[in-house]
Design a protein around this nucleic acid. Sequence first.
DNA 1: ATCTTGATGCGTCACACGTC
DNA 2: GACGTGTGACGCATCAAGAT
Length: 244
Amino acid sequence: MVATITETDESADSEGVIDSHKHREVLSRRPSYRRILNELSSDVPGVPKIEEEKSEEGGRPSNITTMAVPTSIYQTSTGQYIAIAQGGAIQISNPGSEGVQGLQALTMTNSGAPPPSATIVQYAAQAADGTQQFFVPGSQVVVQAATGDMPAYQIRAPATALPQGVVMAASPGTLHSPQQLAEEATRKRELRLMKNREAAKECRRRKKEYVKCLESRVAVLEVQNKKLIEELETLKDICSPKAD
DNA sequence: ATCTTGATGCGTCACACGTC
DNA sequence: GACGTGTGACGCATCAAGAT
């Protein structure tokens, strides 16, 4: 939920930090899974390479890419993706829905393409009435109803004050006040967290692939080893003088 | 039915490393 | 040196299987 974006992130409990620092003192870097696997693959034929970049997998839900090319993609605090396409169409996808629900497209009839210096979106928040709100260009608020099998979305005028936890950000060129700078810092942090989240997912995927690869290699080597032992035994039988 | 435990996945932080 | 990326470590949540 949105509550995860709180100061608890910044002020981590100090004892835990010290402990983890001790742990990390012995941290020694190892090559990335991609590199290890690729080296492995060049040594051993049959070991698949990890591709440099997978266009869809591990990141955004693939169904987003099947739609009109969005200008911006955002992830909400509940894991949904919001894509804002050219012309102001809002596409909302639920990554956990196993592709059944897919994208839902909302076209904002009263908003054209965002001006170049427009305030960009940000985030989603849980409003007091249990709805989810997405803030999008054009000073609009997209509100998702809280319940029901078919989620409903409405476009509303924003309330006078932003709900708690909502982050709005301006393009860097328009920053003036300390408050705007703080907002920019928050936006950057959110962006970094989002990227890191994706990177972690990708990293885990590669790790699993790497482990699978090692396991299959073990299996192959075991078979090879067995064959060699058998061969050795056969040769021993042939070469050794008959003792009877 | 409830509790325990191990496995798994996720988000985040810290840090090493590569690139510019 | 600043910055972005990849990954180990950690804490937490969830789930399934077994024990009580």
